[in-house]
């Protein structure tokens, strides 16, 4: 299977490494021709304002929006979640998102860097039976304030400033997103789940390369 990682800015290498550990040889994607033949795409962590601007100047925004709308499996982490959300608060007015995931996020909703944190979160069984909790690193993370109907919440967590458990992993159709950075830890359950989504999408889509088995 052919998986791409948007490589305009951010922690691209960690996502490529995570996919490599799962036996998938992924590649960086910077220009529209790089999208050809992709079975799935990861939107990495980074600065969402920078990524939004570079997506436009690289003529990537429209082709990518079309591909996601027509079923390309996509996985966004942190800034990647912001790029996928249907509503973004606390961003720049000209900041664009693909609006492929029905939710509202508040940019840097957990605070500035001094409030960035790591923890262990509870995940639903769909994410695998390797143990209930998953290490999670939140870096100036977006806060998911509203989750639309038809969106699955795969994990929630509370913080010292906010005792109410908030959704931190969402899935809707071909879109998976997390507020934290699974690529920064050794837990590969989210990447594995994404590859399963890619595999089932590949078998559903006509005329598209049949993906090899996920290791």
């Amino acid at each position: 299977m052919s998986i791409g990682v948007l490589a305009l800015q951010g922690d691209v290498r960690e996502h490529l490494g995570a996919l490599g550990e799962l036996g998938v040889d992924a590649r960086g994607v910077r220009r529209p021709p790089d999208l050809a033949g992709l079975d799935g795409l990861i939107l990495p962590g980074g600065e969402s304002t920078t990524l939004s601007l570079l997506l436009e100047s690289s003529q990537m925004f429209e082709p990518l929006a079309d591909a996601i709308a027509t079923g390309l499996p996509v996985f966004g982490t942190c800034a990647g979640l912001v790029l996928l959300a249907s509503e973004v608060r606390g961003g720049r007015p000209d900041q664009r998102s693909f609006a492929a995931l029905d939710c509202s996020v508040l940019r840097n909703g957990y605070g500035r860097q001094n409030e960035s944190f790591e923890t262990a979160i509870e995940v639903v069984a769909a994410l695998g039976a390797e143990g209930p909790s998953m290490p999670a690193v939140f870096i100036r993370a977006p806060l998911i304030e509203r989750v639309g109907e038809g969106v699955e919440v795969l994990a929630r967590t509370a913080t010292p400033n906010d005792p109410e458990p908030r959704a931190v992993v969402l899935r809707q159709g071909n879109v998976l997103a997390s507020a934290f950075h699974p690529e920064l830890t050794g837990d590969r359950r989210l990447h594995r789940l994404f590859l399963q989504m890619v595999e089932s999408a590949g078998t559903l889509r006509d005329g598209h390369g049949v993906p090899a088995g996920v290791a």
């Binding site: 951010g10 980074g46 942190c78 960035s116 690193v137 870096i139 920064l184």
Partner: peptide
Amino acid sequence: AVKRGLADMLRGG
């Protein structure tokens, strides 16, 4: 991890 994490997010920028 949290400290170097922000540096990682700035890469390519």
